[in-house]
């Protein structure tokens, strides 16, 4: 029951999902529309519980056990609750405010302000660090040890130089050559790899529907 029922659901919903593409009958299409617009959307929204629940549990356990750096967990928990309260009760559109005021004098702490003032700088700067790590790795690890690696490097150099407007002034043909590399040999290689990926997706989807791939059931009974 604990494993067979979910596997049966996967089989039935999977087969129906396939049928929606090949059977244009109104009954199938209407059912599909209801499943997508009502059922999947609502169930999908509840999946939020998994993510938020796991984060909160992780941080509350850290706080309770006073694990290393547990004090920072309070920042996550408080920030989560405060921003959720502002968003849930302060509304989304500033012209249609919710029950919670979202400004003190001229200072607005509306959900969009939290987004542009906190989420954008933090998220984008964390990824901007990659520029430095990549530069360091280029200096330390990128070695033309053999013919294949040298080929890779030459291709990369042409792309890096060809992509810049300034190099057009130095070597007129460089941007077109870079574009040719992307459009011809690169396309051939990526298409060959793409076939493998598409076949992999196909095989995985089939294995899930037929119950051969069961990793998603997790451990336990």
């Amino acid at each position: 029951m604990k494993r067979k029922l979910p596997l049966l659901i996967v089989l039935v919903t999977g087969i129906f999902g396939v049928l929606t593409y090949i059977i244009p009958h109104p009954v199938v299409q209407t059912t599909d529309s209801v499943i997508r617009n009502d059922i999947l959307r609502i169930i999908g929204a509840f999946s939020l519980v998994l993510g938020i629940g796991s984060i909160l549990r992780h941080h509350f356990i850290k706080i309770k056990r006073k694990s290393e750096n547990w004090g920072y967990s309070w920042i996550t928990v408080v920030a989560l609750f405060v921003s959720a309260v502002i968003g849930l009760f302060g509304g989304i559109d500033p012209t249609r405010p919710g029950i919670l005021p979202t400004h003190i004098g001229g200072f607005s702490f509306h959900i969009q302000s939290l987004f542009t003032g906190l989420i954008v700088p933090l998220g984008s700067t964390m990824f901007a660090l990659l520029a430095f790590f990549m530069a360091s790795a280029s200096y330390r690890a990128f070695r033309a040890r053999n013919f294949e690696a040298t080929l890779l490097l030459i291709s990369a150099f042409i792309l890096m130089l060809g992509a810049m407007p300034l190099t057009r002034l130095l070597v007129k043909e460089l941007p077109s050559f870079a574009e040719w590399i992307l459009a011809v040999p690169n396309t051939a290689a990526k298409r060959g790899i793409g076939f493998g990926i598409s076949l992999g997706i196909l095989a995985t989807s089939l294995k899930i529907i037929l119950g051969i791939e069961r990793g998603w059931l997790g451990g336990g009974e």
């Binding site: 929204a45 939020l48 938020i52 920030a79 989560l80 609750f81 959720a84 502002i86 959900i111 933090l122």
Partner: peptide, 23 residues
């Protein structure tokens, strides 16, 4: 470290907001 934890908290609060209001 503080900035990292703040990011996790606020971005999840944002997620909750729109899941509730728009779904």
């Amino acid at each position: 470290r503080a900035a990292e934890h703040l990011f996790v908290g606020v971005s999840n609060g944002y997620f909750i907001t729109f899941t509730w209001h728009r779904i």
